[in-house]
């Protein structure tokens, strides 16, 4: 079985399981919507990882997406318009910032992204009259494509949107990675100068992926805002970016399903750990990361696909 086919089948299977799980309890639906949103943001990070670049600041675009929803909601109180609007704002921000950061590599790339996300965090905190500072902004009830829905139906709508977007972005990312543009990302990682000698601008290759990743993170932010109905500067705090990178490693960078498996595992463990051993959550997180790095470099996806590969071979 080819990798894209295996991913498609597993992806649909996971989607079906998520729907069942979301039906079980309302809080599960909430947790899984957030997990799907984060998975979409991490998918963007995965594209950059292909080029060997780690962004420690991508929460910036999640926050931009979320705050776009919060700022625009009073004038455009419809989710079907707010989502693309938020994606557009994040994409433009990604294009502008990308022009600058795509000149840098490795630690400089990572730290520049971190720095910019922290600048945005401080701005959200400081401009109280606009952003209400650390209190954050409440998102008013929204309509969906002109329809006024009750709370539960609206939540289901957001969940379904997140699921459909996750599948669509997953399929898109797979096609992208298999295209020459995606292969050129891997070339940046191993021998960037040769690309120059083939007439290709590595910067442009990275910039394209960067803009896509910003767009995905922006969508994620919009979904988070519509789910939590409350946005705060913490969305852009450096730990939020770290969380995304953590999920990327936990889920595994080898396939487009990894980010979603990682995000689901992360959110579920977090909820259960918070409920049972509240003060040990950070320790569990650290231990899991250690285990993944030591014993399962390919993350959850790596473990799964190795197993599937063995099954297919037998």
């Amino acid at each position: 079985m080819t990798l894209p086919r295996m991913e498609a089948l597993l992806g649909l299977l996971v989607a079906a399981l998520l729907v069942l799980a979301a039906l079980s309890t309302p809080w599960m639906k909430f947790v899984l919507t957030i997990a799907l949103a984060k998975g979409i943001a991490v998918l963007g990070i995965l594209l950059l990882l292909r080029a060997g670049q780690v962004s420690f600041g991508h929460a910036l675009y999640v926050a931009i997406g979320a705050y776009s929803v919060a700022f625009l909601a009073p004038s455009i109180p419809d989710a079907a318009l707010l989502l693309p609007a938020a994606a557009l704002v994040a994409t433009l921000a990604g294009a502008l910032i990308g022009l600058f950061v795509s000149r840098y590599r490795e630690i400089f790339f990572g730290m520049l992204n971190l720095a910019l996300s922290m600048v945005f965090y401080s701005m959200l905190e400081k401009f109280y009259h606009l952003t209400k500072g650390t209190d954050g902004i409440r998102v008013p009830p929204l309509t969906a494509a002109g329809m006024t829905l009750d709370r539960v139906t609206f939540e289901w709508t957001v969940f379904a949107t997140a699921l459909v977007l996750a599948l669509a972005f997953g399929a898109f990312a797979r096609a992208y990675l298999l295209s020459p543009m995606g292969e050129a990302l891997g070339a940046i990682k191993t021998r960037e100068t040769r690309l120059e000698f083939m007439g290709v601008s590595p910067r442009r290759v990275l910039l394209s992926a960067y803009i896509l990743s910003a767009m995905m993170a922006g969508c994620a932010g919009a979904l988070v805002a519509m789910t939590t109905r409350h946005v705060t500067p913490l969305l852009s705090y450096w730990t939020a970016s770290g969380e995304l990178v953590f999920i990327a490693i936990l889920g595994g960078a080898g396939g487009v399903l990894g980010p979603f498996l990682g995000a689901i595992a992360y959110e579920l463990v977090r909820v259960y750990a918070a409920a049972t051993v509240a003060d040990m959550w950070q320790m569990i997180l650290g231990a899991v990361l250690l285990l993944v790095i030591l014993f399962a470099r390919g993350g959850i996806w790596g473990l799964l696909s190795a197993r599937a590969g063995k099954g297919a071979g037998a």
Binding site: P180, M181, A184, A187, L195, M198, G199, V200, V205
Partner: peptide, 12 residues
């Protein structure tokens, strides 16, 4: 090789 061919033809 494929990447070289694509580069010539325009990967963008």
């Amino acid at each position: 090789i494929a990447l070289a061919i694509a580069s010539r033809a325009g990967i963008f």
